[in-house]
Computed example of a mutant assay.
Amino acid sequence: MKTVLHKANTRGHFDHGWLRTSHTFSFADYYNPQRINFGALRVLNDDSIDPGTGFDFHPHKNMEIVSIPLSGALKHGDNMGNETVLHQGEIQVMSAGTGVVHSEHNASADKKTDFLQIWVIPDRMNVTPRYETARISNLIRRNEITTIVSPYPGTDRGLWIYQQAWFSIGELTKDSDHIYHFRSPHSFGVYIFVIEGTVVVEGQELQRRDGQGIYDTQTFGIKIKEDAKVLFIEVPAVE
């Protein structure tokens, strides 16, 4: 088993006034040659947007983009005609493919919106762009690791992307023990991101917003030191 550790305070952090953001991997003005990606996981941004502000229309191409609201209301619009408002307990997936233009704004006039923006390198280029949302709160069971994104339609619960990748969330209680089993023997590794709480993964303590990649194994143990919400992203290698 091999690991890579990314403590929360080592991420690239920027305060743009209306936006406070932390980048686990190199993104925009943050560049770290040791943090380009973890397998097919290319971007993991932890964003907080002030009321009435957001990202105006901008383009993307050939990337699988997953957004997970943590608090507040996230308003999405795109040139495919989609207009949605997402809340905690929901998720959106966008396959940028041949090209898409979209915007993301805080839909609230008085509360900030926090969300994770995650990019996964797809396993095929120039697909027809697509957009989907789903409620995941009704899938999640206490003290279970629940899949919310998987490869291609109909292969699991939740949404799907163009990649052999699985996103799972665990809402896990203090003093419980869990084993993560890789979904595929061909996966490169699993990236663990602690949204809230404190956990211990194979002896390494991870606190709020810490991340750790694990690879060269097919299982690993996780002990919950403090009630936690944990995101697991299992991805293949990329050349």
Rank of each mutant, 00 (worst) to 15 (best):
M1C: 10
T3F: 14
V4T: 12
V4A: 15
V4Y: 13
L5N: 06
H6F: 14
K7Q: 10
N9I: 08
R11D: 01
G12Q: 09
G12V: 07
F14H: 12
G17C: 05
L19G: 07
T21F: 11
S22A: 15
H23C: 06
T24V: 11
A28M: 12
D29N: 12
Q34K: 08
F38Q: 00
G39P: 07
G39K: 01
R42L: 13
V43G: 01
L44C: 03
L44R: 00
N45Y: 02
D47N: 08
D47C: 03
I49G: 07
I49M: 13
D50T: 15
P51H: 02
P51N: 01
T53E: 10
G54R: 00
G54H: 00
F55T: 00
N62Y: 09
M63P: 04
V66G: 05
V66Q: 05
V66Y: 06
P69I: 01
P69Q: 02
P69L: 04
K75E: 15
K75N: 02
K75P: 03
G77D: 07
G77N: 06
G77M: 05
N79M: 02
T84C: 07
T84G: 03
V85K: 01
V85I: 13
V85Y: 03
L86T: 00
E90D: 12
V93Q: 10
V93G: 08
M94S: 05
G97T: 00
G99N: 02
V101E: 08
V101T: 03
V101P: 01
H102Y: 07
H102E: 03
S103P: 04
E104T: 00
H105N: 08
N106L: 02
A107L: 03
S108P: 06
S108C: 08
A109E: 10
A109M: 10
D110Q: 08
D114E: 14
D114Y: 06
W119R: 02
I121F: 12
I121M: 12
I121Q: 05
D123S: 15
R124V: 10
M125T: 04
R130M: 12
E132W: 04
T133M: 09
A134W: 08
A134N: 12
I136P: 06
S137R: 04
I148A: 06
V149T: 00
S150D: 07
S150A: 13
P151A: 07
G154R: 05
R157M: 12
L159I: 01
W160V: 00
W166C: 05
T173R: 11
S176Q: 13
D177V: 09
I179F: 14
I179M: 14
I179W: 13
Y180E: 13
R183A: 15
S187I: 06
F188I: 11
G189D: 09
I192Y: 06
F193Y: 15
G197D: 05
V201R: 08
V201G: 11
V201Q: 10
E205N: 09
L206D: 01
R209Q: 15
R209N: 15
G211D: 10
G213F: 07
I214A: 01
T217S: 14
Q218V: 08
F220W: 09
F220Y: 13
G221D: 14
I222M: 14
I222H: 05
K223H: 13
K225I: 14
D227R: 12
K229A: 09
F232T: 00
I233Q: 02
E234Q: 09
